[in-house]
Simulated assay, not measured.
Amino acid sequence: MKILLINPNTSRGMTEGIAAAARAVAAPGTRIVATQPTFGPVSIESHFDEAIAAAGVAEQVRLAAEPPDAVVIACFGDPGLDAAREATSAPVIGIAEAAFQAAALLSTGFSVVTTMTRTCVMAERLLQRYGMHHACRGVHGTDVPVLALEDCSPDTLNQLEAAARTALARDRSGAIVLGCAGMAPLCRTLGERLGVPVIDGVAVAVKWAESLVSLGLRTSAHGDYAPPLPKPMAGWAGALRW
């Protein structure tokens, strides 16, 4: 089984870290092929960054060297999710959607601990979209820059732990969702320190991808997830045309 793991930003170090976390939970026989767009922001910390990153996700799905059995979008904003589902019949899983649903299975209410405070509203909109806003009791920004997670210092780890402890107490939550793919390598440590379920969407998405593939389930091509209509595309997007 081949899972195409797309880091929507252009940080090679982060792509490698996310890939390592994915391979750590993958079943024997699952091949994780990690990639990133050829263009776009080095980190995704705004609506502007996310808009460009979404095009990068579509690029990577469209130009994959061989068709994957499943696709995981490893960014907490799930950028380009619908476009990716149009572009392939393979199951496409965004890590935010996967993490929210897993957390709701493990607790009656969960909190999200993310990076920049300005991105909290983006997570809140996803919760509304996925119908998970009633299960989430709070979204907490730490103002830890995304790239600070590449080589996470003890101080940064302690800052994330402190934010999670505050969230658990203030929100009366039973679980923590990590709001950035770059936090994936920290999941086990934070879980041990906090003593509650700590959910990394990368790991959950990989396991769900494996399950959907093993069940023979594919993305529906009926209606709005049908392949895009063939048409000319200008400029750099010319290579992506149908």
Rank of each mutant, 00 (worst) to 15 (best):
I6P: 03
T10K: 08
R23C: 09
A26R: 07
A27Q: 14
T35C: 08
Q36D: 00
Q36K: 13
T38I: 00
T38E: 13
T38D: 14
G40M: 08
G40I: 03
G40R: 03
P41E: 07
V42Q: 13
I44N: 01
I44G: 08
I44Y: 02
I44C: 05
E45A: 11
E50I: 05
A53C: 11
G56T: 11
G56K: 11
V57E: 07
E59G: 07
E59S: 09
R62I: 03
P68T: 03
D69W: 06
C75L: 06
P79T: 06
L81K: 09
R85M: 12
S89R: 15
A90S: 11
V92L: 10
A98S: 13
A99M: 11
A99F: 09
Q101N: 13
S107D: 12
S107I: 05
G109C: 13
M116I: 12
M122G: 14
M122C: 09
L126Y: 00
G131T: 05
H133V: 04
H133M: 13
H133P: 00
G138T: 06
G141H: 09
T142Y: 09
D143Y: 06
V144H: 05
P145A: 10
V146E: 12
V146I: 13
L147E: 12
L147C: 10
E150G: 00
T156E: 06
Q159R: 15
A164R: 05
R165V: 03
A167C: 07
R170C: 08
G174C: 10
A175K: 04
I176E: 07
L178H: 07
G179T: 13
P185G: 04
R193T: 08
L194G: 09
D200L: 00
G201T: 12
V204Y: 08
A205M: 12
W208F: 08
L212T: 00
S214R: 15
G216Y: 01
G223K: 02
P227K: 01
M233I: 01
M233Q: 13
M233A: 11
A234H: 13
A234V: 12
R241A: 15
